[in-house]
Design a protein around this nucleic acid. Structure first.
Lengths: 217, 217
DNA sequence: ATTGGTTCGGGAAATTTGCCCGAGCTGTGA
DNA sequence: TCACAGCTCGGGCAAATTTCCCGAACCAAT
């Protein structure tokens, strides 16, 4: 009775799709204790809106392209570490989830979740707890029983270099000759990189490399 | 005065995100003349729901994975050519838009659009007109003007779809099952795509796909 | 000294690639 | 209407690569 919830929880919605925002707003408002006090269209506007309205929780869709969503989290948290950010997105890759959390997010819920789960997460985050939906927890658990940082610090120097060249479009032979290694060794590194990053496909590898800034485009 | 709109327009919502569906429903219902008579969670359920409720308009999120959205359009239209389908999605790539239309869609609106635009599109589609949002028209126009010479028009529709999924990180098996193809066929397409685009490596393929806007990174 | 991480590569089985093939289908133009 | 061309779908088979296993050398810290 004495906590913040009894006063209602104020929310800032950040999503680049207007109608989606409209929808969230209605769903949240129908809860009674949740009040959407502002909306923002993109990461850039998000901090301004946060400063202006000081909401209890920021619900942020990191819809990607790229790290713009993560960037926003870092920006806001850097300027006000009290900000509580709930990521609400359709992506459920462990790497992204991890990045979001150590960018400073307080929660992570996928759009596949039931509305009630989302609402629950907002309340939890408002209380200062960490929240995530079941599917997110599952993929995190799966992917990293013992990992702790960015995917990159799992990799050795050589592995990173080979990943970089590979993602840049080089063939195995080219990499081998660039680095004066046997083709076999490059193949083995390639394999190790895949297992360490959890990529099941070369394409996934490229995406991971790109998301780590290892390659542009 | 004698047309369907004066009686209200019935809508079937198809989207795999429950909360998003909730949101749309509320936005549409608040219009007065729009009535969401059914929802479906995925492409498979969509046709059943269509048959059961005979809605005036199907609002379909082809959120992908893969052609399941396009597949759904084709399925429904094959069984009932009177079906009016409005694609409502976050993707705004010319290739997809074109595929959607010649799969039989009546309209295409992105989630970046204002709610009012979406509603307008629904009404237009219900009247039997073709509808698309400004940004979609723009990217279609762009593409049709200055895109001869792009690698993409060397590729068939299937090839493009498979490239899209592959670049998105899907495995050969996943693609095969998404599209109901044999693994061998997907492998063959993969090979054809590589030769047609001149890519010597899967990583190069991903880069090409990205540079054509086929996938985001 | 021993453990542990990183670099380097061999070997063998399982998969995938590279390339060729034929068959069904559709639209287009003579 | 009859080709003809182009897309779609998949089999086959040799060659290449991937997947995992392994050992060896090096260096750093325990």
């Amino acid at each position: 009775m004495t906590d913040v919830a009894s006063q209602g929880i104020t929310v800032l919605l950040v999503d680049d799709h207007p109608i989606v925002r409209q929808g969230y707003r209605r769903v949240l408002e129908s809860q009674g204790d949740l009040h959407v006090v502002a909306e923002a269209d993109n990461a850039a506007e998000a901090y301004g809106a946060f400063k202006a309205h000081a909401p209890d929780v920021i619900v942020l869709d990191i819809s990607m392209p790229g790290a713009s969503g993560l960037e926003a989290i870092r920006n806001i948290r850097a300027r006000d570490p009290r900000a509580k950010i709930l990521c609400f997105t359709m992506h459920n890759e462990a790497v992204l989830v991890k990045s979001a959390f150590n960018a400073g997010a307080s929660g992570y819920v996928t759009k596949s979740s039931e509305p009630s789960e989302v609402v629950k997460a907002i309340r939890a985050v408002a209380r200062g707890e960490r929240a995530m939906s079941d599917d997110v927890a599952h993929s995190l658990a799966d992917a990293s029983l013992s990992r702790s940082g960015s995917v990159l610090d799992e990799l050795g120097e050589r592995e990173i270099e080979i990943l970089r060249q590979f993602a840049g479009g080089a063939t195995t032979e080219q990499i081998a000759s660039h680095l004066n290694l046997s083709v076999k060794t490059v193949q083995n590194y390639h394999y190790m990189i895949k297992t360490k990053t959890g990529a099941r496909t070369d394409a996934q590898l490229v995406r991971i490399a790109a998301s780590c800034g290892l390659t542009k485009l």
